[in-house]
Amino acid sequence: MDKLRKFVWFPTPYHSVLLWLVWQILHDFSRGHMVLGAVFAIVIPWIVAPLSEEAAVAKKPIKALMYTFRLLIDIAVSNYDVAKRVLQSNRSLKPAFIAVPLDIKDPVPLTIFTSSVSLTPGTVSVELSDDRKWLYVHVLHLEDEQALIKLIKDRYEAPLKEIFGC
């Protein structure tokens, strides 16, 4: 058993705010539920925080918001792209596997990176190598391998590295 942790009032501030917000959305912002949600948002992290491991925290929230917006736009673009390919004749498809070299190692940015790759034009992340150095990605229609790898790295990995500072 490791030594007792020092008592902290807000061990996970982001999660407290998120919990409170979700509670409000579920109960239509009534006053009684604002108080009840605040009590939950303070008490539940005390119980849960010792169970969780240290995770990376976004150091630049504004950049993170901009990243989210760009991701939403990319999702719309990717849908147009995939819909076009689906409705056209499928004979001319050139599917391929590619391996993207990874620079980030932390679990949280890595999860966000793989999710972004899955949600954006014509790529689905399929497998991560054991040493977390390569991400195997399946591409629906591949024209230029190196250009695609460079696009993925510049567009999604570089901002994530900046946001999480790793």
């Binding site: 689906v86 498809l93 949600l119 689905v124």
Partner: peptide
């Protein structure tokens, strides 16, 4: 419609 498993993975996850 799509021809194999991995290409079929693309359409539902995005669309």
């Amino acid at each position: 419609k799509l021809p194999d498993y991995f290409t079929r993975l693309h359409a539902p996850t995005k669309a």
